[in-house]
Each structure stands twice: as structure tokens, then as C-alpha cells.
Amino acid sequence: MIEFSPEVIRTVIRTASLIGAGAALIAGVGPGIGMGYAAGKATSAVRRQPQARGAIITTMLLGQIISGSTGIYSLVIAIFLVFNT
């Protein structure tokens, strides 16, 4: 049985949480793809109906922000991992 000093254990936990914080931000890929897709669809919608530009942009922004919140959750988890341990 190997005994570790508390300092070693703390360092390992800190390292693991920092790696975890970095890994959590991989979740930024998904919202990026989703928001880009929404922006592309909005662009083609504006091309088809230029007079509805304002309503399209508002709807696009709302949808993008709702779909972007999954990325925000990963950011929150990363912030907790960095600052809480």
C-alpha cells in the first residue's frame, strides 16, 4: 500500500480539474455548428424575402442564444473547476 502526502493528492486533484476544465470546453464545438447553421438558414431566408429581414434576424438571434446555452453550461462547469478546487 502506497501512502501519498496530502500535497501530492492536492496537486493531482488540481491537475485533474484543470484538464477537466479544458475538456469541458470541447462542448463549444456543438453550439458553434448549430449557430452557424442557423445563421446560414437566416441568410438564405433574407435572400428569399428581403422585406422580412428584421423579423428573421430577431428569430435567428433568439434561436442562436437558446442553442448557445449548452456551450454556456460547459463554460460554467469549466469556471467552477478552475476556481473551486
Binding site: I65, S69, I72, Y73, L75, V76, I79
Partner: peptide
Amino acid sequence: ISHSFRLFGNIVGGGI
């Protein structure tokens, strides 16, 4: 939880 984390994460992320 999702409702509050969305606002909190956006503001804190911007602040950082």
C-alpha cells in the same frame, strides 16, 4: 437550473 446558468454563464464569461 438551465434558466439561471444561461444568464450567469454569459455575464461571468464576458467578465472573465
